[in-house]
């Protein structure tokens, strides 16, 4: 066996460092027992999935794009960046469509709102969490994210 190259060692060291930086804080785990779980014995094991839910945007959007940007980037919040390339933010995901020019696509606030609320209503095969239906984002938060997306040109 040859010995490890300097490059590889540096890469590995970097790897240890980056992963170490993501150390999970020991905060008490939030209660997710209102959603289905894997248990055979707990009640959540028998819980139904919340059905796809069409929700229309009521009134004008009235969202705050700057707030929406923060929500979209926060790992403990929308975390849209986990799967999408967006304006700003680091380490974007690549599974979902690139949203960094979403505002130039000519999509309405209404359809964008409905999609974030529950993308399953548009695409039953989607991997995207039903942000509104499952209470991940509130109505004003979704409005903020819509505003951020529409401002991304």
């Amino acid at each position: 066996m040859k010995s490890i190259s300097a490059n590889c060692r540096a890469a590995l060291a970097a790897l240890f460092l980056t992963t170490a930086g993501q150390a999970g804080a020991q905060a008490p785990a939030p209660d997710y027992s209102a959603y289905p779980c894997l248990s055979y014995t707990l009640d959540c094991g028998k819980l139904a999935t919340r059905k796809p839910q069409v929700k229309m945007l009521e009134g004008t959007l009235n969202g705050n794009a700057e707030k929406g940007k923060q929500l979209a980037q926060a790992r403990n919040n929308g975390n849209c960046l986990a799967c999408h390339v967006m304006k700003g933010g680091s380490q974007p995901g690549t599974r979902g469509p690139d949203l960094s020019h979403y505002g130039s696509a000519g999509r309405s606030d209404a359809e964008t709102y409905t999609a974030i609320h529950d993308m399953r209503t548009r695409n039953p095969d989607t991997l995207m969490p039903p942000f509104g239906t499952n209470g991940i984002l509130s109505d004003p938060e979704i409005r903020d994210i819509v505003a951020f997306l529409q401002a991304s040109k």
Partner: peptide
């Protein structure tokens, strides 16, 4: 399961997020 409505498979079978970036 869960609030995100994910399965293990959502990240670990072909056609899922496997092989794609999920944040870092």
């Amino acid at each position: 399961t869960g609030q995100l409505n994910f399965a293990c498979a959502s990240c670990h079978v072909p056609g899922s997020i496997m092989g794609h970036k999920l944040r870092g």
